[in-house]
Design a protein around this nucleic acid. Structure first.
Length: 557
RNA sequence: AGGGGUAUAGCCAAGCGGUAAGGCAAUGGACUCUGACUCCAUCAUCCGCAGGUUCAAAUCCUGCUACCCCUGCCA
């Protein structure tokens, strides 16, 4: 009967404040997620999109998906498709509210004309280099462009020519007329339209001019009736221009949207940032945008992460204005937590060591029954074969064990999960002295489920019957980068972990072979694994390691 | 004196003048046919620093300090 308190943060506080002050009609709340289709979504976008979506849900408001496609030189339909797929997978619903900034291009151009007529915008002939010189710098004011005083008529004429494609690419630009001496660089007559003779991927007609983000975004938000326009911190000092645009356009005097900025997500041992992800993909350092080592949504999906785990993670990290770096252990916690009850628990051997049970009949096979998940009896049971020759993990045997080692060592008895107690009697080595086989004896009285309680054993290990084992390929992962050192955005490529992927052939009990792409399992004592959709074939299943199991076992000193 | 931001535990993060939530990590212990899970316990005399106001300050005021962002015809 715990009252589930709504999680508050500075954004919900701001919205509550707006509601208290009756800022928006009927206390409406309308958010949006405005990705530019120029790359794949990553975990940072999950935070942003889920944040916007959840807020709309909590306030019984609306949520729009809007592609901010104002720069055709970088954008592509491949990305809009992947973004829609990723968002839907994350559980975000935009109903029929799917929009494209490009569908507002006509209106935006009309609004530019309105600004020109009001004497608030002008066509500039300065080259981009000249503009940079005229802009001044952080401590010195800029100077006004010679074109700033052009007549409204001339500006109108020139803008029309820009729009019709009569002027060469890059030759002119439409600028807002604000203040070249503003301490805020974004207010020093920012460019609002540039000439680009590029075919736009979605626009319904040919355009030769394209609006800049700073000009387009407030208009997009206002047209859609957005109330709270959430974006990241670096746009904080763009806010004055966002407000300038809306306050100077007649259509948007009523209930204009409000921009609120929050800190983007950073994760330890993880490279987030479209530009860097694209570099990894383009330089083929990784296996595409959906490489399981990447924090892209598609990578996490292929790795075996669930939408629920990502939702829970994003909920848990909260949202604030503090630049922060979340420990990757937090993400890993939530996938373990989610899969704990969902994933069947089966046995595989990653690094095999043969064990012969010398007192077990040569040709006998018995099928022992095990729960698919003992924490969820409803999942039912399955059977697995047991016979004279089995594989156990190499790590589960030590010839000279440290204190508190509960696994196999000469003379020690352990339980084989779901089967019998075995005692290690003899260690077989090759000519180099490597342990290649163990000879053990089992105690028939100790069969699982028999109620045997004469003696206890400290360790239980997993195993696989050699004659029934199937080979599978397992991809074990380590972090792509190690951020303990002085790593930064520019040198991360030199800090790529060369051992981030280890491919091993493992042995699985027969039940594992029923697995289908994306299906997730706990391989007992090894971790959570998911069937790789890209490389699995009917002949050989490939499993991605999602995350290992936690372990408090540490060899004593 | 360029402008805009942010500082609460190892990492996130609540808190909004009444005496420091929660999660992750970590540590100890219980349990265990997964050294997992679960459970129990521990983990900020203190909120970047220094002053001030107040019966009372992480919360208000003043002054510092540190870090982040801003000089694309990118978003």
């Amino acid at each position: 009967m715990e009252p589930t308190e709504k999680k508050t943060n500075f954004i919900t506080n701001a919205i509550d404040h707006d509601i208290d002050n009756k800022v928006y009609t009927n206390d409406r709340v309308h958010t949006r997620f405005p990705p530019e289709p120029n790359g794949y979504l990553h975990i940072g976008h999950a935070k942003a999109s889920l944040l916007n979506y959840r807020i709309s849900q909590e306030y019984q408001g609306k949520f729009n998906l809007r592609f901010d496609d104002t720069n055709p030189s970088k954008e592509d339909m491949e990305y809009v498709d992947s973004i829609k797929e990723d968002l839907a997978w994350l559980g975000i619903k935009w109903d029929d509210r799917l929009f494209f900034a490009s569908s507002y291009f006509d209106k935006m151009a009309d609004y530019a004309v309105e600004l020109i007529k009001k004497g608030l915008a002008f066509v500039d002939d300065l080259t981009s280099e000249e503009m940079r010189e005229y802009r001044g710098n952080l401590t010195e004011p800029g100077k006004e462009s010679p074109c700033r005083s052009r007549s409204v008529e001339e500006n109108l004429e020139l803008f029309e020519q820009m729009k019709c494609g009569k002027l060469p690419e890059g030759s002119r630009v439409l600028r807002a007329k604000i203040d070249m001496a503003s301490p805020n660089m974004n207010m020093r007559d920012p460019a609002i339209y540039r000439i680009l003779h590029i075919k736009h991927h979605t626009a319904d007609k040919d355009w030769f001019i394209f609006p800049m983000y700073d000009y387009a975004h407030p208009i997009e938000d206002a047209i859609e009736g957005i109330t709270h326009s959430l974006c990241t911190l670096e746009f904080e000092d763009h806010r004055p221009f966002y407000e300038w645009v809306l306050s100077n356009l007649d259509d948007f005097q009523n209930e204009p949207p409000r921009q609120i900025e929050f800190a983007k997500l950073n994760l330890t041992k993880t490279i987030i940032g479209k530009r860097y992800l694209k570099q990894l993909v383009d330089e083929k350092i990784v296996d595409g945008w959906d490489d399981p080592r990447l924090a892209t949504i598609s990578g996490l999906r292929r790795r075996g992460y669930t939408p629920e785990s990502i939702q829970a993670f994003c909920e848990a990290i909260g949202v604030a204005k503090t630049n922060s770096t979340v420990d990757i252990a937090m993400l890993e916690h939530f996938i373990r937590d989610d899969l704990k009850l969902k994933a069947p628990r089966l046995m595989t051997i990653m690094d095999p060591l043969k064990v012969t049970i010398t007192n077990y009949p040569e040709d006998q096979v018995e099928w022992v029954e095990l729960p698919l998940n003992q924490e969820d009896p409803d999942m039912g049971n399955y059977t697995t074969p047991f016979s004279r020759e089995i594989f156990v993990e190499k790590a589960d045997f030590m010839e000279a064990p440290p204190k508190k080692y509960y696994r196999l060592f000469p003379g020690n008895e352990v339980r084989l999960r779901g089967a019998y107690f075995i005692t290690c009697n003899e260690v077989v080595k090759d000519e180099d002295g490597n342990v290649i086989e163990l000879k053990c004896t089992y105690d028939p009285a100790t069969r699982s489920g028999s109620g045997f309680s004469e003696r206890k054993v400290k360790g239980t290990i997993h195993w696989v019957d050699i004659n029934h084992a199937k080979e599978i390929e397992v991809h074990l992962y380590d972090y792509l980068i190690d951020d303990e050192a002085g790593i930064n955005k520019d040198n991360f490529i030199e800090h790529i972990n060369p051992n981030s992927l280890e491919i091993v052939n493992a042995y699985a009990e027969p039940e594992v072979m029923k697995a289908t792409p994306y299906e997730k399992f706990q391989f007992i004592r090894n971790g959570f694994f998911s069937v790789d959709p890209k490389y699995s074939t009917p002949a050989k299943l490939v499993f991605n390691e999602i995350v290992s199991l936690k372990s408090s076992w540490k060899p004593s000193k």
